[in-house]
């Protein structure tokens, strides 16, 4: 295929993908600028006017923050940041151990670790509630953070990556007399930045979307997280659609903004670092 044509096809795909990603959200964003009773005005039946914020108002955003959504976002960021930071350390260490060392029963333990994330959270929510309340953590931030730190999927992700790193890297460092933790820190971690970002994203998004567990574990509702806060927009009789969409827009923007500065680790990559085999 000639390069020009190839580029054209590529751009066509890019535009198509972007439209599919953006268009549904475009409607949600515009709806967040409408008064609540006008959300469905141009929708049943659909007219192109539904894609324009007419009438326009910022009421939804004012109301969202009057409800204390600022604090709710801060709470969630705290929980997600703590989980991500602790989770990266804990799961990377375990992945490192599984990838580099042999010990009796290793494959069984690794198997159990991987399987541990295959059970639906709904199935373990109730027993977990009992465990956490026996620890006395109900209504404490620890109840949200600690159970989510160790993550079988993240261990598996690090294991998969560390396994790929050629052994002569660590052996060379060993010969120079470096300790294992030093090797992890100065050889493996720099190589694994994309993996760290993936694992961090996984841990972060898990908390960002957490809903059932925060409802159970924080019954006093003094400390709300995003999904719990958003659920309050729908009550028994009415739904504050414009606020719901406004909050959705805000909560979608934050992970995006956090990912953008990390992009350079991804994009420079193909020309730069990489594991030389």
């Amino acid at each position: 295929m000639p390069p020009v044509l190839r580029k054209a096809v590529l751009y066509l795909c890019l535009v198509a993908a972007a439209i599919i990603f953006v268009l549904p959200l475009w409607w949600a964003i515009l709806s967040s600028f409408r008064p609540n009773d006008a959300i469905f005005r141009d929708l049943f039946p659909f007219t192109p006017r539904a894609l324009w914020p007419e009438p326009f108002t910022l009421d939804a955003y004012v109301a969202i923050f009057e409800r204390g959504f600022g604090a709710i976002i801060a709470n969630t960021l705290l929980v997600a940041a703590l989980t991500t930071a602790l989770g990266l350390v804990v799961n990377a260490l375990a992945g490192f151990a599984f990838a580099l060392f042999d010990f009796p029963g290793k494959s069984t333990v690794l198997g159990i670790v991987v399987v541990s994330f295959m059970l639906p959270f709904e199935a373990i929510a109730m027993p977990l509630y009992t465990v956490v309340s026996q620890l006395g953590w109900i209504d404490h931030v620890a109840a949200l953070v600690v159970p989510s730190v160790a993550n079988g999927l993240a261990v598996f992700l690090f294991y998969q990556f560390f396994q790929q790193v050629p052994k002569d890297y660590s052996e060379a460092a060993r010969l120079e007399g470096a300790g294992w933790l030093r090797i992890l820190w100065s050889v493996y971690v720099p190589l694994s930045l994309p993996t760290c970002i993936s694992a961090g994203l996984m841990l972060f998004i898990f908390q960002w979307e957490a809903f059932l567990w925060p409802l159970l574990a924080m019954p006093a509702q003094q400390f709300k997280v995003i999904q719990v806060g958003m659920a309050a927009f729908q009550d028994q009789y009415t739904t504050a659609w414009n606020q719901l969409f406004g909050a959705a827009v805000i909560t979608a923007l934050i992970p995006m903004l956090l990912l953008i500065p990390l992009q350079r680790y991804y994009v420079q990559g193909l020309a730069g670092s990489g594991i030389k085999g």
Binding site: V89, V90, N91, L93, A94, F96, A97, F98, V109, I112, V113, S116, F117, L119, A123, I124, M126, P127, L128, T130, V131, V146, P147, S148, V149, A150, G152, V155
Partner: peptide, 20 residues
């Protein structure tokens, strides 16, 4: 290296899974 992750998984995943 293994204890933090395995302990966490044992208490907050494996044990509840067993109960389930």
């Amino acid at each position: 290296t293994l204890a933090p992750a395995l302990l966490g998984l044992a208490v907050f995943r494996a044990y509840p899974i067993g109960l389930a």
